[in-house]
Design a binder for these strands. Sequence first.
DNA 1: TGTGCTATATATAATGT
DNA 2: TACATTATATATAGCAC
Lengths: 179, 179
Amino acid sequence: MGNKVNLEYIVDGSSRKATYVRRKKGMLKKLEELTTLCGIDVCAVVYSEFHHQPLVWPSPPEVQRMINNFNNYSEFGKSKNMMNQESFLEEKILKATEKLAKFEKENREMEMSMRMFELMANGNIIDNMNNVELNDMAWIIDEKLKHVNWRITELDNKASTSQSQAQMADEAVKPIDKE
Amino acid sequence: MGNKVNLEYIVDGSSRKATYVRRKKGMLKKLEELTTLCGIDVCAVVYSEFHHQPLVWPSPPEVQRMINNFNNYSEFGKSKNMMNQESFLEEKILKATEKLAKFEKENREMEMSMRMFELMANGNIIDNMNNVELNDMAWIIDEKLKHVNWRITELDNKASTSQSQAQMADEAVKPIDKE
DNA sequence: TGTGCTATATATAATGT
DNA sequence: TACATTATATATAGCAC
């Protein structure tokens, strides 16, 4: 168990899939952690024999957003220089893009919840009321939500306190160092 | 050493960078291994304060190839070869408008799902799930809550260091090239 | 199939240079 | 600041159901 692994293509199909499932999970966890810890933006797209559609992370709207950035700077930038006389069109594009970004952002907020809902809605619901794990889960979720709510309240208070307190808060939260 | 890590945004800049450097390396290694072992195609793009340009993996051309594939009806790919500049822009507006409508629709749908989820989470609809879903749920909910916490932290930082945060956000979208 | 288990391999946080 | 070390934490391969 936990054997050293030969880093080459796994020929056996079922082993390959097992490895894929295990490592995909680990990999997404790593992405999630890196994103959380370092406050960065990551997107990933996976094409494989195991999905009919590409697996995207963290969410299709987010990936789309990053891909648009990626493309826009190489293609749209060029167009911009070639079409000065079309600036009114550019402006229309810009406005549409901004509005789009706003909706994409809102979508991102809800994406995780959406995934939760899908898990629940996909016929995985059973009707046994007395499962201990569910109760544990409920408690844990409840505690975490309390903590989140507490932090929101704290933030609210900070927002409405005096300037001097805000300055104290400034010192408590160090600015991001640029390197 | 190897201490258990608090999975939230690292406020201290140098720690954050150290963690980013270490984990980025590990993450890319995982991507490499997953690709090799399972014969899949992965691409990743990272926007961060640590690079002026996005970090792309496995390589800019490869990422571009996969992104073009992802956008099966790539507006740019078609436009570049088939359209004059004016129709190119008109096409962009059209696409942006369509996309906007799509996101607005998705938003409405997600809001509805969100409400359903809230009902479920309050124990009013779902009584139970099997252990597998519980574990998945636990992970996803946990991540969701971490994300919420991170957003609060981000908001907090922004409130007290709005200047440096704004600069950071600006740098998050820069043209692509080799790292 | 997919899940749990557990021995190992691997990743990595803190520390020293 | 970057790199080497090392104690721990985490990921995971192979197996049993």
